[in-house]
C-alpha cells in the first residue's frame, strides 16, 4: 500500500512538473506573443518578378495578383505594362497585349490619357506587366497577396520559393504593402 501511494505521489509530481513545463514554454511564448494575427505579404520594393508567385502558391490559382496604384500611374498611351514590347499598334488587340491572360483593361479617358484596370478574375500573378511597368514606367503596377484568397499557410510556399526573400509576415491590420498615395491607407490606421 505504501508502495502504491509513493508511486501515486511520484506520478502526481511528474504530472505537475510536466504541466509547469508546458505552462512555462507557453508563458515564454505568450510573453513575446501578439494578440493580433499575422498574414503573408510581399514587399514590392524587393520583388524581381520571377513568376514564382504564379506557380508556387498552394492554390491552383495563386493568391497573388497584380494591383494598380492609380495615384502613381501616368495614364500613358504607350504603356509598357500593357503593350507587348514592339506592339504594332497601341490598341486593345490581343496580339498587342503583354498580359498572357488579357487581364488588363485599357479604357480611354481623355486625350492623351488611358486608364488601366486589373481584372482580378483573369490575373494569375505572373508579374510580366509589373516588370514592363517597372522598366519603362513608374512601377504603379505591382504584385500583392490578395487576402480574400490567401489561405495564410503557416509556411507560405511562395515565400519559401521567393528568390528575393520579398515575403514576410505582417500584422493583419496592415495586410498590404502599397505604393503611392494608396500606401497612406494603412499608415493612417495605426
Amino acid at each position: 500500500m505504501a508502495e502504491k501511494t509513493r508511486r501515486e505521489f511520484l506520478k502526481s509530481g511528474a504530472n505537475t512538473a510536466a504541466a509547469l513545463a508546458v505552462g512555462g514554454v507557453a508563458g515564454l511564448a505568450i510573453g513575446i506573443a501578439d494578440r493580433g494575427k499575422l498574414v503573408w505579404q510581399l514587399d514590392p520594393e524587393l520583388c524581381i518578378q520571377c513568376e514564382k508567385c504564379a506557380t508556387n502558391c498552394v492554390l491552383p490559382e495563386s493568391a497573388v495578383k497584380c494591383v494598380h496604384s492609380y495615384s502613381m500611374c501616368g495614364y500613358c498611351d504607350l504603356c509598357s505594362g500593357y503593350l507587348e514590347p514592339g506592339a504594332k499598334s497601341r490598341d486593345t488587340g490581343a496580339e498587342n497585349q503583354l498580359c498572357p491572360t488579357g487581364a488588363i483593361q485599357r479604357t480611354f479617358i481623355e486625350d492623351p490619357y488611358f486608364e488601366y484596370q486589373i481584372d482580378k478574375e483573369l490575373c494569375i500573378g505572373c508579374g510580366k506587366c509589373v516588370k514592363g511597368c517597372g522598366a519603362f514606367g513608374n512601377g504603379s503596377l505591382y504584385l500583392q497577396v490578395q487576402h480574400d484568397r490567401c489561405l495564410n499557410c503557416n509556411e507560405c510556399a511562395i515565400a519559401r520559393a521567393c528568390p528575393a526573400q520579398a515575403y514576410k509576415r505582417v500584422p493583419a491590420e496592415t495586410p498590404y504593402i502599397l505604393r503611392g498615395e494608396e500606401a497612406g491607407r494603412y499608415a493612417a490606421s495605426i
Binding site: 502613381m72 481623355e110 490619357y113 486608364e115 495586410p175
Partner: peptide, 27 residues
C-alpha cells in the same frame, strides 16, 4: 520620389478608381 508624383490633371471630371484591398479573415 517616383511614388509621390502628381497624377495627370484630368479635365473630363474623371475620378481615379479606388484600389480594392480585401481584408484577411477576421481576428
Amino acid at each position: 520620389p517616383v511614388q509621390r508624383f502628381p497624377k495627370p490633371d484630368f479635365e473630363s471630371g474623371y475620378e481615379r478608381p479606388i484600389l480594392q484591398t480585401p481584408d484577411p479573415r477576421a481576428l
